[in-house]
Design a protein around this nucleic acid. Sequence first.
DNA 1: TTCCTTGCAAACGATTTGCATTGGA
DNA 2: TCCAATGCAAATCGTTTGCAAGGAA
Lengths: 146, 146
Amino acid sequence: MHESKLHRQVEPRLREAEVRYTKGRRVIVEVLATSDGPRSAAELHADLGATVPISSIYRTLAVLEESGIVTPHFATKGIARYELAEWLTGHHHHLVCVDCGAVEDVDVPDGYEEQVRILVSDIAGVARFTPTNHALEIEGLCKDCA
Amino acid sequence: MHESKLHRQVEPRLREAEVRYTKGRRVIVEVLATSDGPRSAAELHADLGATVPISSIYRTLAVLEESGIVTPHFATKGIARYELAEWLTGHHHHLVCVDCGAVEDVDVPDGYEEQVRILVSDIAGVARFTPTNHALEIEGLCKDCA
DNA sequence: TTCCTTGCAAACGATTTGCATTGGA
DNA sequence: TCCAATGCAAATCGTTTGCAAGGAA
């Protein structure tokens, strides 16, 4: 996805939420767009060479989450990681390394995804639960830790 | 599952890990066995009427996790919840309420589970990832919040 | 000018740890 | 008896917030 296209998608959504699309917010959106998996506040802080204070990163992530630009992810103990929302990146799942904690995105072929969707709605029906989303987390060893 | 049977399963595993199966540890195992979803340290503390200090609960959970008796779960922001490991309870997935944060276990019919297992191994193969486990988290509104 | 946003430091909540005491094999 | 387990309090870590200064409309 080209960077300027991304900003054109994000901008109206933030305007709707009545918040500004500032330089600091753009930078974080850009880093997330080039990451191959969700990033924590500390990781983003490092990605940006500590040019943005950590508290600003948290505030930006909170604003972006409220506006539906990013979604949080909690598969690792004690830390939250964020990624661009699926309307920006497409639906995908995660590979979580149980050794080093790294999280990587994976796409699931359409046929499989369809099976998962059917499974989810069947299960939810039985449990009187109204599903809004699903996440398949595959835990194991990444290629570096194997 | 009958309580004493549970203890008979847990006991040898702890002995193997060279830790004692004390009263405090038994009580936590029992509470987890009667919960219908994973519990946080604070929830366990409350479940036990504050009779066990919170730091002991954390320590017990750490010991039980290292010994493979319980597994952690992180779907809710900022807090870890624990449940009995699958070799004690059977394989299952989770319904996570996006409103109140409650997490409930659900069993998945065998046919579906087989599909998921195939999906996981196919995906992992492509990504050069060695899967050890998978978790299907269904997010949505529980019957109380709907 | 008028708010929104940012930076810094202090505050917070969940979890961990040091140390002296208790308890089980 | 002896070492693991526990309780309490202090420390740590990720995250949030108050407040004053900076920046965009």
